[in-house]
Design a protein around this nucleic acid. Structure first.
Lengths: 249, 249
DNA sequence: ATTCTTTACTTGTGTATACAAGTGCAAAGA
DNA sequence: TCTTTGCACTTGTATACACAAGTAAAGAAT
């Protein structure tokens, strides 16, 4: 008898079940983003949150740790958890993708080079494993416009793992990070980045509509995910004359 | 009878006593940085670390969490804590100061404007509290050279709190972050930053020895500390043509 | 020899509890 | 009235334990 093993990289549209502390994080984060808790407010105390959500203090604290990490609250011993503010423009430097970094501005994504399978040449200065190298590389290039102004030019490269229907998906005005999370249960958990100021080559000049002396910010990023062994890479050119990048550290 | 209250911002040279999980973090970090554990190695398991250091698992895990956050290890369920590598150039984007970001390169710090007390004009785009505004502002400007090449130009502004002997201290070739930590028990716990690519003004052109069309990376940072209410600010101009900034997110 | 199962180990999540340390306020004292 | 003390509350640290879930290797079955 032949058993068809379910591929690890299965393809569903269901939200992944998450631990309690992450659920609490999402709930509180939403309340802050929606303005229910305002800057300067105190969150309910840890013990109150325990009772309200039927959790214990270590679990509640783990949720609050995430909020601290993302800059939504600060904690003060003897006082409480002080709300810092709403969206706080978490920014491309610390969080997942370009899309979630923009906030309420109108973001348009234009595909310049559709997802294509090529051989690996390089990963923007980062080392790639032999395993990934043998798989080949999916590459794509996208232009991001904020309020109709071209601001970002993204080049993405990822190992050609068996992600069903991936190359045929439409990325027009959709977030790569959302697609990975919602359709393949892949979350970006962290990564490395290098940042430098440079001048644009002809390709970038054309798409970002700037001249050769216009300073451009470049990010080379390595993205690590919750899938063991799945990392991917991107290079982002930014015109920061109207929008600067922000983030926490 | 008059009691002289000990000022909170006392001035000692003793290292602050730190919690167990932070001590464990420092120990393991040192072992990785010194090359005792190499990239790909497995750290002792959590239970082994418990026994070895007479701690319990939650405490050990908290220490390991810090190592994960700084990119020294990744953890894999069922397998263990996998060492990522040595210094890993933690970089100015995620960690404390310029000095600790450079690594083994030869860093020279030249004071351009000595610590001076002025009135607040602005804090590089960040809001300052009325309390801080009334205290006045200590400002200083420093040029950092790596291997004799001018790379960073730092402008620092901090509220004029009662830091004994602060303005008279020598900052020549010393790290501001180290001075704050070792002499005043003030640790930078996090902060916000904005990054953009720009062109240098005459002042920056002169000190970084570049022409007007040379792209310069600028960081505007807000530093939060373990002292409640003590935040300070800095603006850093970087010539990234030889050294790019790196960090984790 | 190959495949499957078991087993021992790893990290991930969660509960329950205790005490330390900082904050803020009200009550007691001068 | 002003100051001090004490108390109730907050978060910070740490212990002890339990079970879930993933990994890898040894052993059993084919």
């Amino acid at each position: 008898m032949i058993i068809f093993r379910i591929d690890k990289f299965s393809c569903t549209d269901e939200p992944e079940r998450s631990p309690q502390y992450q659920k609490l994080y999402e709930k509180l984060r939403k309340l802050i983003e929606d303005g229910y808790y305002k800057r300067g407010d105190l969150l309910p105390s840890e013990n109150e949150l325990c009772k309200a959500h039927s959790l214990t203090r270590p679990t509640v604290r783990k949720g609050l740790d995430l909020l601290v990490h993302d800059g939504f609250i600060i904690r003060q011993q003897g006082k409480g958890s002080i709300v810092q503010g709403r969206p706080r423009e978490i920014g491309i430097l610390s969080i997942s993708g370009t899309t979630s970094a923009i906030g309420k501005e109108k973001l348009i994504t234009r595909i310049i080079v559709k997802p294509t399978i090529i051989a690996w040449d390089n990963a923007f200065g980062y080392e790639i494993s032999e395993a990934d190298k043998s798989l080949g590389c999916i590459t794509m290039e996208r232009l991001r416009l904020i309020n109709n102004l071209p601001v970002f030019y993204d080049i993405t490269r990822m190992p050609n793992l068996n992600l069903p229907r991936f190359t045929s998906r439409s990325f027009e005005n959709r977030s790569l990070f959302d697609i990975l999370r919602k359709n393949y249960q892949i979350r970006v958990t962290g990564g490395e980045q290098k940042i430098l100021a440079t001048t644009p080559d002809a390709h970038i000049q054309k798409h970002l509509r700037v001249d050769v002396n216009h300073p451009i910010l470049r990010l080379d990023r390595k993205m690590e995910t919750n899938r063991v062994g799945f990392t991917f890479y991107s290079q982002i050119y930014c015109n920061t004359s109207d929008y600067s990048l922000s983030g926490r550290f």
